[in-house]
Structure formats: C-alpha cells, structure tokens
C-alpha cells in the first residue's frame, strides 16, 4: 500500500490528461486519415490514407496560409525580441520606480486577446481609427486591405508579445551578477562594450529560449487573427490555425482540417524539442 500511495497522487491528473489530451490528439491523427464530414462524424467514416494531406498540400490556399504563418511568426518574433530586449535593458537600470513601471507592461498580457484584437480593430479602422489620425492618412482600412492586413496583424502581435519577452529577459538579466559589469566599468569599458562583451554573452541563451517560445506561441495563436480579420480579406491574412478552423467548423471538412492541425503540431513539436535543448543549456 505504502508503495502505491505515490501513484494515487498522480493518477487523477494522468487519467484526466489521458482522456482529454492524449485521446483527442490520437483521434485527430486518426481523423486525418479518414474522410470525416458532418454526416459521418459519429462513426463510419472511410479510411482514405494520405488523401487529406495530399489534398491540403496541393491546395493553393494551404500553401498561402503556410507562408503567411511563417511570415507572421518570423517578423513578429524578431520585432518583439528587439523591442522587448531594448525595454528589458532599459528597465534593468536602477532608477526609482523601474520595477513598478516594468510590471505595468504585463497589463497587456492579462487582458484577453479577444479584447485586444477588438480594440485594435477599432484603432485600425478606416473611418474613426486612431492610427489613420496619427499618420495623417485618410480612409485607409488597414485590416480590410489585401496588402496591409498581414502587416497590420503582425503589428498587433508585436504589441501582444512584448510583455512576455520583457519579463523573461528581465529574469535573465537579474541572474547576471552585478560584479561582472562593475569590473568591466573599472577597466574602462564603455556602455556598448559592457553590453557586447559582458551582458550579451550571458544573456544570449535566455534570448534564444525566449525566441523559440515566442515562435511557438505565435505559430499556434488563433484568437488574434480570427477576431482581427478572420483571415481576410480574401485570405490575405489567413494563417494555418484559422484555415484549419474554417475547414472544420464552417466547411465541415473534419479530415482535411485535422490534417492541417497535425502539420502545425509536427512543426511545433520540432520547435519544442529545440526549446528543451536551449533551455537545458541555460539551466
């Protein structure tokens, strides 16, 4: 009995995740090899091998969405890393209120993404939007313009992503012993030299881990694009998660949607292995 007690502690969580996480994922994989639609959802769908995957890869819509996903993740992660690193370094200086000010950025993290997306929908509106007013542009409908929708969504994603970079790099900066910088200062190193040769080498692993995590979050994010543009106009900001959602829940092509989700998952899985490696090196 004594030896079994430890298992009783994990059993509820393991059963729960087995039923509601592992089983659904397996089901998703199975569905991707079947011709599942609204009619045969409850059983009896035909097995069609890799047909869903073949159809997805051959579909121009999928290829476009894949490119949008890559652009969306790559550009927003690079920009939010640069901005977040700058802010982290700035607020890591000791001045009165630095800590309190820094944690205010997290307000953007606490707000539901749906709310932020709705808010930016208005800021980027063509008629009464604040962005047009600031830029002095007239009647530019940022989110309804085929060439502007994706860049606009990337801009919003940067706003959403900065707090995470700021917080996790701050944790990395705090871990660097003060003496290192002070020693360099005594040796007459300039601010840039101290950053380049003292801070950066110690911060780099944290930046790498943060970059991988941010990429994962951005690649899997659905809420922002769905609320801001629903992938439109005319698919201009369609990313893989919104495409998969649309296939399943508006076209009822469960099998094809499941195939696309599995593609996303395969990419995320590779990235998370990368994260676990970078993270192990940090700690």
């Amino acid at each position: 009995m004594r030896r079994l007690t430890p298992y009783l502690f994990v059993l509820p969580a393991v059963l729960f995740l087995g039923a509601l996480l592992v089983y659904p994922v397996v089901l998703n994989v199975l569905m991707s090899f079947q011709d599942v639609s609204a009619g045969n959802l409850l059983g009896g769908a035909e097995w069609i091998g890799f047909e869903n995957y073949r159809a997805a890869f051959a579909d121009e819509v999928f290829v476009d969405a894949a490119w949008h996903s890559v652009t969306y993740a790559a550009v927003s992660v690079v920009v939010q890393l640069v901005a977040g690193t700058g802010l982290a370094l700035f607020y890591a200086q000791s001045f009165p209120g630095a800590r309190a000010l820094r944690s205010l950025y997290m307000i953007a993290y606490a707000i539901p993404v749906v709310v932020s997306a709705e808010l930016f929908r208005w800021l980027l509106d063509g008629r009464s939007g604040f962005v047009n007013w600031v830029l002095g542009t007239r009647d530019v409908f940022w989110l309804a313009d085929t060439s502007l929708a994706l860049p606009a969504v990337i801009g919003i994603q940067v706003w959403l992503g900065v707090p995470f970079v700021l917080v996790s790099l701050t944790a990395g900066l705090v871990a660097i012993p003060r003496e290192f910088g002070e020693a360099a200062l005594i040796d007459g190193a300039s601010a840039w030299q101290r950053f380049r040769w003292v801070t950066w080498p110690l911060l780099r692993p944290v930046v790498a881990a943060t970059a991988v995590l941010s990429t994962i979050f951005t690649l899997k994010s659905f809420d922002l694009v769905w609320i801001a543009t629903q992938g439109g106009p005319a698919g201009a900001s369609e990313i893989l998660p919104t495409l998969a959602y649309r296939l399943v829940f508006t076209s009822f092509l469960f099998g094809k949607g499941a195939a696309i989700m599995n593609v996303i998952f395969a990419v995320l899985f590779v990235l998370s292995l990368l994260y676990l490696r970078t993270d192990r090196r940090t700690s």
Binding site: L20, L21, Y23, P24, V25, L27, N28, M31, I216, L219, K220, F222, P241, A244, Y245, V248, F249, F254, G257, A258, M261, N262, I264, F265, L268, F269, L271, S272, Y275
Partner: peptide, 11 residues
C-alpha cells in the same frame, strides 16, 4: 506547446 485549436476538433 499544444495549440488549443488542435484540441478543438476532437473535443
């Protein structure tokens, strides 16, 4: 690393 959207269909 799981996308919520991936669980949505099977759930």
């Amino acid at each position: 690393m799981f996308p919520a959207i991936m669980l949505a269909t099977p759930l």
